[in-house]
Nucleic acid binder design. Structure first.
Length: 247
DNA sequence: AATACGATCAACCGCTTCAAG
DNA sequence: GCTTGAAGCGGTTGATCGTAT
């Protein structure tokens, strides 16, 4: 089976997302929905592949996404579910509203796996920082999906991940960058949560296209390229006020 | 103060699954 | 039932930050 490459080599951008890219992506999806991830970046004015856009949206930009600050209850849920399901991160994420599979996976590898392992070996040796070595690839190779169920013991905050407040919602090193991003994030969330978008009976996520050639889509008043979906009417589009996304 | 090393996490890559024609 | 394209998933990488020496 021949697959079309998900990312072409024609200057398709990689790496960390900029606030401007986030703004474009959030604005576009909020307005038009993720009707087609592969086509979406083209119409949103992004030089990214669809996969990258999807990941960015699901992990960081979608509404109600939670970052850091895992509670003991959440840790316990993850540990228990991982004991039952193994590395089925998306299934585990399904039990933790607001948490993405990627973040749960990272949290597992950075904090919970140690807890699980240490609880199993606590009778053999004391916890020592020198015993903790970062070797993700090696650890992953050695890690078994069927972590011992019996050995998982919840401990105190000793092994809790580092505190993460709303201030480091986006952990950029550049302060201006971060501040700009936080402002945007709050604006986007306000926009999304205050409007009718998420309560609309019409589910934009369910858009499907034929995957064939599109007519050149029109460009709307805020610079976004309207998707070629016959299901999106002008009354639908005009129900959103995106004036504060000032490009 | 400089350097080395470990921890964290955002993002990429490639494979699998799903769904439409 | 087969082919094909898109979405989803999990493993892995690499940049960055924090801490120890």
């Amino acid at each position: 089976m021949v697959r079309t490459p998900c990312c072409d080599e024609n200057g398709r951008k990689k790496g960390t997302w900029t606030p401007e890219e986030d703004r474009k992506l959030a604005a576009y999806i909020t307005k038009y929905g993720s009707w087609n991830w592969r086509q979406l970046p083209k119409y949103a004015g992004l030089e990214r592949c669809g996969k990258s856009c999807r990941l960015r949206w699901l992990n960081y930009l979608r509404p109600n996404v939670k970052r850091g600050n895992y509670t003991e209850e959440e840790d316990e849920i993850i540990l228990n579910l991982h004991a039952q399901l193994g590395n089925k991160w998306s299934a585990i994420a399904g039990h933790l509203p607001g948490r993405s599979d990627n973040e749960i996976k990272n949290h597992w590898h950075t904090a919970l796996k140690k807890r699980a392992n240490n609880s199993g070996e606590s009778s053999k040796k004391c916890n020592s920082k020198n015993n903790i070595r970062r070797s993700t690839s090696v650890a992953n190779k050695n890690a078994s999906p069927s972590t011992s169920h019996e050995n998982i013991v919840l401990e105190s905050s000793q092994w809790s991940p580092k505190e993460s407040s709303s201030e480091d919602f986006f952990s950029y090193s550049n302060t201006d960058y971060q501040e700009q991003h936080e402002v945007f994030q709050q604006e986007a969330l306000d926009e999304i949560t205050s409007g009718s978008f998420w309560t609309e009976p019409f589910l934009v996520e369910s858009f499907h296209t034929t995957g064939t050639d599109f007519l050149a889509p029109p460009i709307d008043y805020c610079g976004l390229v309207c998707p070629p979906s016959p299901f999106i009417g002008h009354e639908f589009l005009s129900s959103f006020d995106f004036d504060h996304f000032n490009y």
